[in-house]
Each structure stands twice: as structure tokens, then as C-alpha cells.
């Protein structure tokens, strides 16, 4: 078991009175890339939100263990410190909070959690410079407010930039391809691939197969009506691309 990074068992979660996740099971090991695909409304974003600790979702039963820790007991900030990262489908604009201050607060909060001294101003700027290069993020965005006035592509690149800075063990990319043109998609995917190591893992949540041409998955899961109804290798994504989701829906709905 020690090789398991994330173990999700029979996870149920709701928003308000509505149950959205209805028994998720998932095992992720270091070095793996998992794709979670599914039609709209199947619960893909809920799953990413629940794993990251978004308080709008309520976990009603089941468990999630993150390298031996009870993930569901941790605050969103501690999940981040323990190495979980969520790339948002819709990155939030925060007027008045500069990217620099935002990242400094994030980096130093993690260092404090790990009992490390805050980074010096020089080291921090060096780190920012280094990581920006990974996704070719323009330096001028650093002085702007978080995501404010960023284009769709810049927002997504900014997510991967933050991922690069925080060096997570497990990254969840929630529809990172949505709203991206082909060039931005290439840059973002290249960034994700550069950050991949034997020790970390990635969950790619996507509606379309397109992203998986760039970020190659080891496993593909199909989420439908709050459950993973089918799992397979990379070929499953191609099959979905060809046949759509209807055959899966039929299979499940006729059971």
C-alpha cells in the first residue's frame, strides 16, 4: 500500500440536497497519469472540488487517503501543503491582490507548514523567474492582480505556473483545455509534461480527448452519474472520441 498516492473509496458527496458523487473508487500511484472523462453534469468538477476541499460540497460517506493521511479531514490549505494541487476550470479573478503577493503568501505559507524559513526576496524572485519560463508566462502579468484582465490562455498558463511553483505530488487539472486555442494548449501541456516525474501524479479531467494527445494518460476512467462506470487504457479515450458517450450512457442506464 505504501506506493499508493491517492486512494478514494466509495466517496459520496452532495451540494445542498443533491447527491452528485455516488460512490467513487479511484487509486492513483506515483508516476501515473489518470484521465477522468465524462459527459457534462457527470460530476467531474465536483470530484476535483471535493478532493481539493471546496466547502460548498459536503462529503456524505466514503474515504479519501492521500499518502497515508485522511484527506477529508484536512483544510484546503493543508491539502495544498501536503502536495495536492487543483488547476481550476475557471481561475478566480482577485482584484487588488497582486500575483507577486499572492504567490509569496502561498510559497511562504507552505514553507511555514514545513518549518522552513520564508524565502528571501531575491530567492523568491529567482524562483518566480524560473517557473514562469516553464509556461512562457509574461513577466508583466506578475505585477497585475491575480487573473484580472488575463486572457483565457493566460489564466490557464497561470494555473500551471502556480503548479510549477508549488511542486505538488498530485495535480488535478480540471478542464484545463477549455477555452484554449491550439497554441495555448500546446504550451500548457508542455508545461505539465515538464513537471512530470516518477514521484508525482496527475489527474486530468476533461470532456474531450484532444488534451490527451498532449498529456498521455496511463489510465482513462469514465465518470457518469457520479460513478466511475468504466476504466481502461489510453485506447478508451480514442474510443470515446469516435463513438461519443451515448453507448456508455445506454450501458449504464439499461443496467
Amino acid at each position: 500500500m505504501k506506493d499508493i498516492l491517492l486512494q478514494v473509496d466509495d466517496l459520496h458527496a452532495s451540494i445542498g440536497d443533491k447527491e452528485i458523487l455516488r460512490g467513487i473508487n479511484l487509486t492513483v500511484r506515483p508516476g501515473e497519469v489518470h484521465a477522468i472523462m465524462g459527459p457534462n453534469g457527470s460530476g467531474k468538477s465536483t470530484l476535483s472540488g471535493v478532493l481539493a476541499g471546496n466547502p460548498v460540497y459536503k462529503v456524505t460517506s466514503g474515504s479519501a487517503t492521500f499518502h497515508g493521511l485522511n484527506l477529508l479531514e484536512l483544510s484546503p490549505e493543508d491539502r495544498s501543503h501536503e502536495g495536492l494541487f487543483l488547476s481550476f476550470q475557471y481561475p478566480v479573478e482577485i482584484p487588488g491582490v497582486s500575483m507577486v503577493n499572492f504567490m509569496r503568501a502561498a510559497v511562504n505559507a507552505k514553507r511555514a507548514y514545513l518549518h522552513e524559513a520564508p524565502l528571501s526576496a531575491g530567492d523568491f524572485l529567482k524562483l518566480m523567474r524560473q517557473k514562469r519560463a516553464i509556461v512562457e508566462l509574461d513577466n508583466k502579468l506578475a505585477s497585475r492582480s491575480v487573473n484580472e484582465g488575463f486572457s483565457g490562455g493566460e489564466k490557464k498558463r497561470n494555473e500551471i505556473f502556480q503548479m510549477a511553483v508549488l511542486e505538488p505530488r498530485l495535480s488535478i487539472l480540471d478542464e484545463t483545455d477549455s477555452g484554449l486555442d491550439i497554441d495555448a494548449l500546446r504550451i500548457v501541456s508542455a508545461g505539465v509534461n515538464k513537471l512530470k516525474t516518477q514521484d508525482n501524479a496527475t489527474i486530468v479531467i476533461t470532456h474531450y480527448q484532444r488534451l490527451l494527445d498532449y498529456i498521455k494518460p496511463d489510465y482513462v476512467h469514465i465518470l457518469y452519474k457520479g460513478r466511475i462506470v468504466h476504466s481502461g487504457g489510453p485506447e478508451l479515450a480514442l474510443e470515446l472520441e469516435e463513438r461519443g458517450y451515448d453507448w456508455i450512457k445506454e450501458q449504464v442506464d439499461n443496467q
Binding site: 466547502p55 483544510s75 478566480v92 502561498a106
Partner: peptide, 26 residues
């Protein structure tokens, strides 16, 4: 803004600090 608050917390910024940064920004 609860969305902004969660976004900041998901990056590891503790809730109290995130609130303070948001009010400062306001």
C-alpha cells in the same frame, strides 16, 4: 468573495491570511 477565498486557500494561503488579503485588496 467565497470563491476567491477558496482559490487562495487551495494555494495554501491560510484562511485568516486570505481573508485579510481580500479585505486589504478591497
Amino acid at each position: 468573495d467565497e470563491k476567491a477565498l477558496f482559490y487562495m486557500r487551495s494555494r495554501g494561503i491560510p484562511e485568516a491570511e486570505a481573508r485579510m488579503m481580500l479585505i486589504n485588496a478591497f
